[in-house]
Simulated assay, not measured.
Amino acid sequence: MRPPTTTAPLRQHLWRRSSSSSSSPSSLLLLRQPVRQTTRQHRLFSSATTRRYHQLPALTPPKRPSLLPTPTSTIITLSRTPHHRTLFIQTEPTPNPDALKFIPGLPVLPENASSIEYTSGRQTTNSPLARSLFQLDGVTSVFYGPDFITVTKAPDSLWHLLKPEVFALITEYLNNGAPVVQGEILENEDTKAQEGDSEVVSMIKELLDTRIRPAIQEDGGDIEYRGFTEAGHVLLKLRGACRTCDSSTVTLKNGIESMLMHYIEEVKGVTQVLDQEEEIAQREFERFEANLAKLKGNTASP
């Protein structure tokens, strides 16, 4: 039997002793010595490796890419600030089926500014965005709220045809970073405390500003305080989506009037105020309905 090819004298000596008397206690003792030595070295190596392992910095696993598709049709990148930000424009329905609320996710008007409403293209001299929206066939009014834009269409127009064009104009204009209204913007002063206000008027203004106005703005509209009469009636003007809504009377009576009368005993009712143009349009509409009813009565079969 040939000895193993090695350069360690200890291993050669162990091989010679084990080949002569493998069952002797001395040979077994010598055979066990390298095992104990190797085990001790292994333990030392393991403890050193453990210490080195605990000194390494913690590794964080890489983030898995999202598998959800990105809605590119509703995301634009604004360059209004040095750092680019992603803008999500959402649309919400309103109680008025002819009005749609667009929420860009950023302030539309400055803080404490009064809401602005355009009911015709002639009024859009200070708003290029509203002027562009009125050029679309079917748009009848544009309303700017604190953080939303409400667009109202004609009853014979269809939203699935008009909505993509309105959405494209709003996103394109907001992408430029220019304000929606050029020039001076009036502050919201209708519910602001004034000198000479009675205690009842102060309570009405506070209630309108803290409770009623936020609820009306959720529906894409706004209210404007016009005064308090001696008979106990609060004069209000509905704006935005609530102005042309069929349920505007229900909103005034069941919503605003009930809350004001519940908290303030001096309030006896709420009256809606119309501008001169709106009064003329309403009279013409009532006259048209009367003539139509008369015509139907003459042609009706007995």
Rank of each mutant, 00 (worst) to 15 (best):
E111A: 13
D156E: 15
S132V: 02
G196K: 01
L31C: 07
S114W: 09
K294S: 13
P71K: 00
R64M: 12
G297P: 01
K205S: 05
V234T: 03
K163Y: 05
G232M: 02
L10G: 14
C245Y: 00
E187W: 04
S114L: 08
Q135L: 13
A215T: 15
D137V: 04
T70A: 02
T119S: 12
E286Y: 08
M1H: 12
L260W: 06
L14F: 01
Y225K: 03
K153A: 03
T152S: 10
T38A: 15
E199L: 07
E230T: 06
D209N: 08
E266F: 04
I116N: 04
Q282D: 14
Q37L: 15
P61S: 13
Q12G: 02
V139T: 04
L87A: 10
V108S: 05
V201I: 08
N112T: 07
V234K: 01
E279A: 09
A154S: 13
S114F: 03
P61L: 12
Q33L: 10
R43Y: 10
Q135R: 15
H13Q: 13
E206I: 07
L292S: 11
G196N: 10
H160L: 03
Q276C: 11
L274T: 00
R2L: 12
S23N: 06
K294V: 09
F288P: 01
D197V: 03
R16P: 00
L129H: 04
D209Q: 11
E199G: 05
